[in-house]
C-alpha cells in the first residue's frame, strides 16, 4: 500500500533534513567569517580587492546612464539660469581679479621671505585622476569605488579630493580599482583645525551626511567656521579644505562638507609620500 507515496514522503523528510543542516552550517560559517574578519584583516582585504576589481568594469558600464542623465539635467538647469549666472560670474570675476593681484603680491613677498629664512620647500604631491563608478551608501558604510589602483600608483592611505575639498582616503587598493573611505563613514577620524583661531579637533564620521567635531571646546566653534585638515598624525597634509561648521547644538558640532557627494564624478588621488597610519610597513626598530 505505501509504495511510492511513502518513498516520496521519506525523500521529502531527507530533503528537509538536508536543508536544515545546510542552513545551520551556513549560519555557523557567517559567524566564523565575522570573527575571521575581525582577526585577519589582510586576507579579507585581499578578497575585497579581488571582488571590487572584478565588478568595477560592470559598474563602469552601469554608472554611464546615471552620469549622462545627471549631465542632461545639469545642462537644462544651467540654460534656465544662464543670464543670472552670467551676471554673477562677471561680479565674481571682478572680485577674483582683485584677489589675483593680491595673491601675486603675497607670493612675491612669500618668496623673498622664504629665501631670507632659507626654508626648504615641502615636497609636492603626485596626482592621479579617477572616475567614481560605485557609491556605497546605506546605513552601515560610506565609501566610493574609483577606477584606478596599483597599476596607476594608487595605494592605501593616499588622499582623495576634488577641487572643492577633501573626499576621503584610499582604504583598499586593487589592481585597477580602489575604495575610498568617505569622511562621512563611521570609521573616519581626521585631525582638523577649526576657524581662524585654528582650534584643534577630530572630525568624526557617523554614517550621516554631516560628520561631527570631537574634542572641541563648544564655545570655540560658531556656524560658518571653516574646517581644514591639520596634518597631525601625518595621515593628511595640512590645509586641505573640508567644510564649514553648520550648527552648534548641545554638545554636537556638525560640519557641512564642501564636496557634494551627489555631484562626485571625478576625483584626484594625491600621493604626498606621507607615512600615515594606514600603511602596512612595520614599525622601525630603534
Amino acid at each position: 500500500m505505501r509504495g511510492p507515496s511513502g518513498q516520496i514522503s521519506r525523500l521529502g523528510t531527507l530533503k528537509s533534513l538536508l536543508q536544515r543542516f545546510a542552513f545551520l552550517s551556513l549560519i555557523g560559517v557567517t559567524f566564523a567569517l565575522m570573527l575571521i574578519g575581525k582577526a585577519d584583516t589582510v586576507l579579507v582585504e585581499r578578497a575585497r580587492s579581488a571582488v571590487t576589481d572584478a565588478v568595477t568594469p560592470i559598474l563602469r558600464v552601469m554608472s554611464e546612464p546615471a552620469s549622462m542623465i545627471a549631465q542632461v539635467i545639469g545642462n537644462v538647469r544651467e540654460l534656465a539660469s544662464i543670464r543670472e549666472q552670467n551676471a554673477e560670474l562677471r561680479e565674481a570675476n571682478d572680485r577674483l581679479l582683485q584677489w589675483q593681484s593680491l595673491a601675486q603680491r603675497l607670493e612675491n613677498e612669500n618668496k623673498s621671505l622664504r629665501s631670507l629664512l632659507a626654508l626648504v620647500p615641502e615636497p609636492g604631491a603626485e596626482f592621479v585622476s579617477a572616475r567614481v563608478v560605485g557609491d556605497v551608501g546605506g546605513a552601515f558604510a560610506q565609501s566610493v569605488i574609483i577606477t584606478v589602483g596599483h597599476s596607476s600608483g594608487v595605494d592605501k592611505g593616499q588622499v582623495v579630493m576634488t577641487g572643492e575639498g577633501l573626499v576621503g582616503r584610499v582604504t583598499q587598493a586593487g589592481n585597477a580599482s580602489s575604495r575610498v573611505l568617505l569622511i562621512t563613514d563611521i570609521n573616519s577620524r581626521i585631525p582638523v583645525l577649526v576657524g581662524d583661531a585654528g582650534n584643534r579637533a577630530i572630525l568624526a564620521g557617523d554614517n550621516s551626511a554631516r560628520p561631527k567635531l570631537l574634542y572641541l571646546n563648544q564655545s570655540a566653534a560658531a556656524p560658518g567656521d571653516k574646517v581644514v585638515t591639520s596634518g597631525d598624525a601625518e595621515a593628511f597634509p595640512p590645509g586641505i579644505p573640508i567644510g564649514q561648521v553648520a550648527e552648534v547644538e548641545d554638545g554636537n558640532v556638525a560640519v557641512e562638507l564642501f564636496v557634494a557627494r551627489d555631484k562626485l564624478q571625478y576625483v584626484r588621488v594625491a600621493d604626498y609620500g606621507l607615512g600615515g597610519i594606514l600603511t602596512e610597513q612595520p614599525a622601525q626598530q630603534p
Binding site: 545546510a22 542552513f23 560559517v29 557567517t30 574578519g37 578578497a47 582604504t171 583598499q172 573611505l181
Partner: peptide, 29 residues
C-alpha cells in the same frame, strides 16, 4: 537556495566593505 543566498550576502559584504558575513547572516535568516 540557502547556498545562493549566502553567496550573495557574502558578495555584498565584500563589495560594500561591511563586516564580512553580516549581510550573509541577514539574508539567510
Amino acid at each position: 537556495s540557502y547556498g545562493a543566498v549566502f553567496s550573495l550576502g557574502l558578495l555584498e559584504d565584500l563589495l560594500t566593505a561591511t563586516p564580512i558575513g553580516s549581510t550573509a547572516l541577514v539574508f539567510l535568516v
